[in-house]
């Protein structure tokens, strides 16, 4: 790969940087273990289910008028972030778009704080100042939460740049959708990531927002070909397929091999946002059927392997529902921000 030749950053195994910054120092990998548990099949099911039930509840609160503005649900895509979180090391960074609630939970954010942010309350993750699209959990390696389509791709490339600069072995996983893949700054980021062999994995969550025949015809996985960036299409509805592809790409990045594009073939079961009923989506076109649901697939696998019985799964569901119910209750009851918060956090 020609890009490998001019790679002053990746060539340095260890930066002379004066240690970790305050965010990295605040980093606490233990908060991730709550979400991923032992990383086994049941834990993955539980993680995906938490996101599913959380998003269903968010949809409900939106309908009740408790959540304002935009609310982009992740229902149907859960296997992508859960599989990538399992593939990554706890110290790796995640960054994504406004469709971020699942990523937040996967990075260990407290469901109560996430839901309370969506209702605009003082107990929200951003103190009620960010909203559904603007939340961050740097202590879990999560850097937002970006409302401008594809903005996170350049910023994620910068996180990876910092990793290479420090030589700290961290990898950034930058998520974006098939719509964002057409943004100019994605190409700019690919150029720089390839040129400097940055430790980053570009995860395109292809939920096929647009009919395929409106695209270029070439797979999104091939978008990096001109820059020498390898890509692969992955079954984004299968959490273990995602994990496996993610592990390969993250390993490559960590070893100095540079960026990889993973095109996750997934499906969003709801509209673009709660304001969008999604009626344009594949009208007359067959959905892939209930078996494409990543949760159903994981559930069938667990039962087939005899890892748990129906009763166990029911009890997991009850436990998750209770947790989400608690989050919703908190988000509805928590007071709005103090008026004194209006002009804080503008400058340090």
């Amino acid at each position: 790969m020609a890009a490998a030749l001019s790679s002053p950053l990746a060539a340095r195994p260890s930066a002379s940087s004066a240690g970790e910054n305050s965010f990295a120092a605040d980093f606490s990998p233990e908060i991730l273990s709550d979400f991923l548990g032992d990383g086994g099949e049941l834990a993955l099911y539980r993680g995906m289910l938490l996101i599913r039930r959380f998003e269903e509840k968010a949809g409900l609160l939106f309908g009740m008028g408790l959540i304002g503005g935009f609310c982009h649900l992740y229902i149907g895509q859960e296997a992508v972030v859960v599989g990538m979180r399992l593939a990554a090391s706890p110290r790796d960074q995640f960054i994504t778009s406004y469709r971020q609630h699942g990523h937040l939970l996967a990075c260990g954010a407290d469901p109560k704080a996430v839901m309370a942010e969506m209702t605009g309350r003082s107990g929200g993750l951003s103190g009620g100042k960010g909203g559904s699209m603007h939340m961050y959990a740097p202590e879990g390696g999560f850097y937002g939460g970006h409302g401008i389509v594809a903005g996170q791709v350049s910023i994620g490339t910068g996180l990876a740049f910092a990793n290479a600069y420090r030589g700290d072995g961290r990898v950034c996983v930058a998520f974006f959708g098939d719509g964002a893949a057409d943004q100019g700054q994605v190409a700019e980021s690919l150029v720089m990531a390839a040129r400097w062999r940055l430790p980053i994995v570009f995860v395109i969550e292809n939920n096929r927002a647009l009919p395929e025949d409106e695209g270029s015809g070439a797979p999104l996985a091939d978008r990096g070909a001109a820059f020498g960036i390898p890509g692969a299409q992955v079954d984004g509805m299968c959490v273990q397929s995602v994990r496996e592809a993610g592990e390969g790409a993250i390993f490559r990045a960590r070893e100095g091999g540079g960026p990889t594009i993973l095109e996750m073939r997934t499906e969003r079961f709801r509209g673009h946002s709660m304001a969008d009923p999604g009626k344009y989506r594949r009208k007359g076109e067959e959905r892939r059927g209930p078996s494409s649901d990543p949760l159903d697939r994981q559930r069938e696998k667990i039962l087939a392997l005899g890892l748990a019985g129906e009763a166990d799964l029911k009890s997991i569901d009850a436990e998750v529902r209770a947790r989400v119910g608690e989050a919703a209750e908190y988000a509805a009851q928590c007071p709005e921000p103090d008026p004194g918060a209006l002009e804080t956090n503008v400058l340090l």
């Binding site: 002053p8 950053l9 970790e20 350049s154 490339t157 996180l159 740049f161 700019e188 720089m192």
Partner: peptide
Amino acid sequence: GARRVVDTPIAEHGFAGLGVGAAMAGLKP
């Protein structure tokens, strides 16, 4: 050296965003 004086491609949108990301990670671009 090239590690700390970094020549970019002509890609202002991308490298400005890259700088923001590096700053969020605690560097001082």
